[in-house]
Design a protein around this nucleic acid. Sequence first.
DNA 1: GTTAGCATGTAAGGAGTTACATGATTTT
DNA 2: AAAATCATGTAACTCCTTACATGCTAAC
Lengths: 208, 208
Amino acid sequence: MAARKGAGVLELAVLGLLHEAPMHGYELRKRLNTLLGMFRAFSYGSLYPCLKLLLAKGLIVEDRPEDEAVPPLPLQSRRSKIVYKLTADGKERLQQLLTEAGPAAWEDEGFGVHFAFFSHTRADVRLRILEGRRSRLEERLDGMRAALARTRERVDSYTLELQNHGLESVEREVRWLNELIGRESAEQGLRAEATKNTNQDMPRETGR
Amino acid sequence: MAARKGAGVLELAVLGLLHEAPMHGYELRKRLNTLLGMFRAFSYGSLYPCLKLLLAKGLIVEDRPEDEAVPPLPLQSRRSKIVYKLTADGKERLQQLLTEAGPAAWEDEGFGVHFAFFSHTRADVRLRILEGRRSRLEERLDGMRAALARTRERVDSYTLELQNHGLESVEREVRWLNELIGRESAEQGLRAEATKNTNQDMPRETGR
DNA sequence: GTTAGCATGTAAGGAGTTACATGATTTT
DNA sequence: AAAATCATGTAACTCCTTACATGCTAAC
């Protein structure tokens, strides 16, 4: 029972991209795959059904440039390119997705997409997602180090090489996160300083 | 139309692990997830059906310790733990999977598993898989660098940060591959040197 | 003797891919 | 006018997950 239905990474990615600018499917797919180049690559076979769904949910609509109330050519379907844009509901939904700082936001699949749209994400949520991911990776590090220790005894040099490389990759990502968290905290600190006199509480509860 | 049916990453991983030692499902799954810790984590819901399939294909069999021709207890099913081991067909199939140096072996999903069992893989196949993966990643690098250049103009600092981190990760993996390829080539060179007088041709064709 | 963890399985379904089918627009 | 590429879409399928259902074995 996730949020409603069919909420994969795609929904967020599409809403996020459309928030920046209206676009048609084909273009959307390319932007998607360069944006997330390293993690995932989507095909039309998943993108178009997703657009259909978002349309049905009323989160996006066709963006016809207004002046086409009556199509000039008689009965021509006249439709290549279908440009979509976010509706008010769509923007709301995007904001909702961006505000949920749960596993979906820091597991491998979701993290990249969430991060890509961090500039539309509340500062405190950003920080919690980064920390969530870090602790997720640190858990994994424990397991990997244990595995490595066991492997070292059975000396399979390739397995060892693989696990070692994996370990270093994850360690590297943790260092990256540390740096980001450092920067974010500093900003948060400054902001807290600035609003201290208004005595505005930090949000105490997550919406789920 | 892949090789026969249901040939995911799991089949290779299971055959590979069982080749090292007979095991039951539960144990198999743990070994699987520590071996591949960084890439994937399988659940029982995929492992057991896979074992069933492999059993049906005759690639594995139950490994009862011989002395149990007649079960001592009357009608007790007496079965916790079902230990599986490879059959001759299973070993052949494993060898076949390990020898195919195609996309399945160097795309993200498959590479880790193939690499993990490199010690059972022919030296020339190893080299071709490593090179295959490297050129795959280099293609990706081109796309990513182009994307980065475009992003730099639109200044979204988080997107930029993400793409930059992704780029560096991939560059790092390429350097790793370069090192491995260097080592492998050196060994290949030595081996070629050693068998030079026998004039044994390098294999000219791929099995596909 | 009851909780905790080992062990095996199945049914339903989610998320995405491949391959196909088709048409419009641009380039050569 | 042919070829390339832009653009939209669907059907079938794959691989895997979640949630469930069940029983054994060890520890407390």
